[in-house]
Amino acid sequence: MGSAEQISQLAVDGLMVGALYAVIALGYTLVYGVLQLINFAHSEVFMLGAFGGLFACRALVPGDGATPAGLAAAGLVLVGLVAGAAAGGAAAYTLERCAYRPLRRRGAPRLAYLISAIGASLFAFNLAGKEFGRQSVPVPDLFANRTVVTVLGAEISTQSLVIAATALLMLLAVDHLVADTRLGLSIRAVAQDAECAGLMGVDVQRVIVVTFVLGGLLAGAGGFLYAMTFNASYTMGFVPGIKAFTAAVLGGIGNVRGAVLGGLLLGLVESFGGYLFDASYKNVIAFTVLVGVLLVRPSGLLGTRLGRPA
């Protein structure tokens, strides 16, 4: 085993990636809660959000190679996040409009949605590859990335702090939105029983759209955060998408806090598992843990849907 520093460093790294998983997982969970369908194209929303943020930053970062500092840096990060979220939201809206709504109107069987989502995903990421090139593109340096603080021997960089703070804010905001607002109430109502919610005067169609867009905003901003560390490319969505989906299921799909818990846990498991065994086995470990958890708790750790006991 490693030293205490190593352990805390692994924990910090794991939580960082886990926070990103959690942000994406919220999109899966919200959509699942409302429609009971796995949105397989969510990973492309994430990817498009990353590109949105990336291009906005590229357009604004001064070309002289100097790293922005202070307010300029904060502003740029904010612009990237907003642009990423906007791109993600737009992508999610388009997705709902083109790949889901026509099927819903025709009362298609449940699996048809899954296949439609897979088709849309193939379409979207290959089109992105065509338009944005097929190489991996780095986000320009928006701030000087240095070690800010050391906790129990773990070095925490500026970037980690930015990611953690943003992810935390978004998670809190969504939790508040779903738990305490009128919109959240209608989301929960639709999740519980769409037909009944409709009879009670909830505009179900609108709630579905809003839920998709909400998931898209989160995934888009998350995509930008992810791209700051791991670069953007047209295939970037696939792996984090699967991980986030896993996280959502781990926590109990349809459950907002479950998604957060699942994401953080999955990040930790991967980080420690990759260290204990071998980096190439970390995905094996992540999935093994998932299977193990589901065998003990068949509906995830927290196991409730939005508002409804599973």
């Binding site: 099927l103 439609s116 897979i118 849309a120 379409f123 290959n126």
Partner: peptide, 18 residues
């Protein structure tokens, strides 16, 4: 290739979901 492939799949599911 897969842009077209994806489009075919989505259209198929819209017009003939069964």
């Amino acid at each position: 290739r897969f842009i077209y492939f994806g489009a075919v799949v989505v259209l198929m599911m819209i017009f003939r979901p069964e």
